[in-house]
Amino acid sequence: MEYDNKYIRHLLQLYEEGESSLEQEKELKAYFSSGHYDEAFKEYALLFQFFEAESGTQHPGEVVLPKQKSRFSWMNIAASICIIIGALWFYQYQVEQEKLAEARVAFEKTQNALNLISLNMNKGLEKLEYVEVFSEKKNEILK
């Protein structure tokens, strides 16, 4: 777009007086960023080029926002509590089962030992029968 120097000068004057409209300032920006401006306005070009460059600056930081608190977070908390309770209960159950198994093993061992004793006792008893027969006979003779 071709611009007339007189027109630009008029716009710049309005600009300096603070009377220019946003549209007129846009025109000036477009004129100076095109690169085809008159040398007479080169200081103005610096200014408008600066504005143009500056308006492109971005926020270099990262926006840190607090974590969103909603129903979901409550559900998460509830779920984790459930899982913990479940895990504890399961652990206790496991420990109890182990204790029971140990007791059963001990019981069986004792039972085996007692059986062994009683078996040997019975063997002894069989031998005692001879003694009984002997004493019966002895009584018969001594009568």
């Binding site: 600009y15 300096e16 007086e17 603070g18 009377e19 200081e43 103005y44 610096l46 200014l47």
Partner: peptide, 16 residues
């Protein structure tokens, strides 16, 4: 606002 704008612009331009 207008006065501040005009002063600022004129000042920058005179420096430039």
């Amino acid at each position: 606002v207008r006065v501040a704008l005009s002063r600022a612009r004129k000042k920058i331009m005179s420096e430039l």
